[in-house]
Write a protein that binds this DNA or RNA. Structure first.
Lengths: 328, 328
DNA sequence: AAAGGACATGTAATCGATTCCACACATGTT
DNA sequence: AACATGTGTGGAATCGATTACATGTCCTTT
């Protein structure tokens, strides 16, 4: 591996001068050319570890995901990358596999790797996490959960859920079932459920326990929840099922189809997430587009801005869009 | 930021000793405890830039993707991560946006970042790329393309395509259309097409130009290709369409459905990739599972092995699995 | 003609770790 | 008693860059 010293020797200059060639200092045209020629010949590229050690900047931003291979995650990462790559940053990826402790562990790790900032796709909120974030003392953005004291990009879960419920109501559904997730996830678990419940309450529609089930984000759990709902309410079937994610909605559709219910005539289904799949199902699924990629872009922009100058911690709420399709 | 020197001072030892605590050198139980206590109190974590500068190892492996937000990519990355995370490596992600030059650029960049190895999800082969790889002189794995002189993990595109074609033939299809991609991509563009063509030739089935179209991986291009095929062969419609990716197959299905053809009665459709979606389409799509995640794992294992000790460049062919579903 | 400024380059300290070598002491071996 | 061996610690060089400061030209200005 050739170093700056090798180049300096070969060009008969000091390494200071070589460094200046790369950092826009005073260098005569003459010397600059001589050095560049040698650089090209040797294929020299400066060691970024050394540079990072000296400058305290790495040109890397850390991204913490709950799970790599989900469509949401890959859209967000793609958005982040689109923005940061333009500024010649790279992404260091970590995956918590949905384990809370790992979030904190990775924040520490990323800090010791001298990343210039961190974006966290958050799935929960807890005091230790907040503490770890503030201890890291780095530009930090949370996506998806409102972390106190942290710049957060939020989806409007409450209103998305209530709009969707209202859409079902507008389509003459009076008996609306719900497939949710656990409340450890404040946004998906709690906010979306509140949106659903409040809307039913406001429109004086019945809320029945046997119409409400809790899954774990997976297609299979959507299937199981639908099964429970149907079985537990044989005499009083709902006419619509609202699942808080597309995947669970898909599982529900599958069960309904297996049981011979037709969608939406017998039972309507709606989800959230605007997965690619949702458009190509039969019938196409009514859902909510959260513009995940834009959320990633926005997060990256805010992060870059914070790196230049400390900002007050703010909250940004993303827009969303109802996509009405034939499943309702 | 606290450094090793701070810790050393606070513990009244030399920084050598502090370093030894983290690197399993001789340290008395007494001193080790004293140091660890201070480490905990201060939240000290060693600077990995400094460490990397000194040791020439970074604990980071570079991954070069053609496009981040595709299901294939995210499965592979997930597999890679699963393996390397266990050894405390992280992934540095780069996205070429399908631009050849960027592959080379990123190889250089990753090199200067002192990554310990690189995994490339390859989409093409060219001399400059090979040169750049050998110049980098790093443990290197290619996934998806057979790069000369580079350890490669290959999908068996030729046989997967010919098996799939044979499956169509076995289902009494004699007029089989094909939606492919450009031959710049040797694996998807060339091998899969060869598998298709050779099988037709061997079984004495007709190969007709108007049944062969070329898309660009997207769902829309699948739709357009299907449209062209149907329009160009009105008097002699194929009874099956083989698309080399699931996404293009989905586009084709969409067009066929719009035009009132029923699948598979009028025209059968098959794809490759075993996308999550394929299972939930109506009808479910016949496809080939390439076990992308396993490919990622395998790549990571080989890379880790190469990092320990240089190995001969080898070629590994992944197994695949035909998934026969109702679209055929 | 002396002073000041712009330009070009070099010297040396520094970033935060690792690691070779030396040294001190205690214990075991012959 | 002399020597080897094992254990625990520190000194100092080193990795490859950046950067404050110093130095030396050459030109312009007054």
């Amino acid at each position: 591996m050739t170093t700056i010293n090798d180049i300096a020797k070969m060009a008969n200059v000091s390494r200071t001068t070589v460094s200046r060639v790369f950092n826009n200092g005073y260098v005569s045209e003459d010397v600059r050319k001589r050095i560049m020629k040698i650089v090209e010949e040797t294929g020299y590229t400066p060691s970024l570890s050394a540079k990072s050690l000296r400058t305290k900047k790495s040109g890397v931003i850390g991204v913490i995901l709950p799970k790599i291979s989900t469509e949401t995650a890959s859209r967000v990462v793609s958005g982040i990358n689109e923005v940061v790559a333009k500024e010649n940053f790279q992404i260091l990826l970590t995956d918590t596999e949905l384990k809370k402790e790992k979030e904190i562990e990775y924040i520490r790790l990323l800090k010791s790797r001298h990343v210039d900032g961190i974006i966290l796709l958050a799935t929960n909120i807890n005091a230790d996490l907040i503490k770890a974030i503030s201890a890291a003392d780095l530009p930090f953005i949370s996506i998806g959960q409102d972390l106190p004291g942290v710049t957060s990009i939020l989806y409007d879960d409450y209103h998305a859920a209530s709009d969707l419920t209202n859409l079902l109501v507008a389509n003459h559904h009076k008996k609306i079932a719900f497939i949710g997730v656990g409340e450890e996830d404040p946004s998906v678990g709690r906010q979306r459920k509140m949106g659903y419940l409040d809307t039913l309450a406001k429109t004086n529609l019945p809320i029945r326990e046997e119409w409400i089930e809790e899954g774990d984000f997976s297609i299979e759990s959507g299937y199981e929840c639908a099964k429970k709902i149907i079985r537990n309410s044989e005499k009083n079937l709902p006419t619509a099922i609202f699942a808080v994610t597309d995947r669970m909605a898909i599982g529900a559709m599958e069960y309904l189809r297996e049981q011979g219910y037709s969608i939406p005539q017998d039972i309507a289904v709606a989800g959230i997430g605007a997965s690619t799949m949702s458009k190509h199902l039969t019938p196409p699924l009514t859902t909510v587009d959260y513009y995940n990629k834009d959320a990633g872009k926005k997060a990256a922009q805010l992060l870059l801005a914070q790196m230049v100058q400390k900002k007050d911690k703010e909250k940004y709420t993303q827009t969303y869009r109802l996509i009405k399709r034939d499943s309702v």
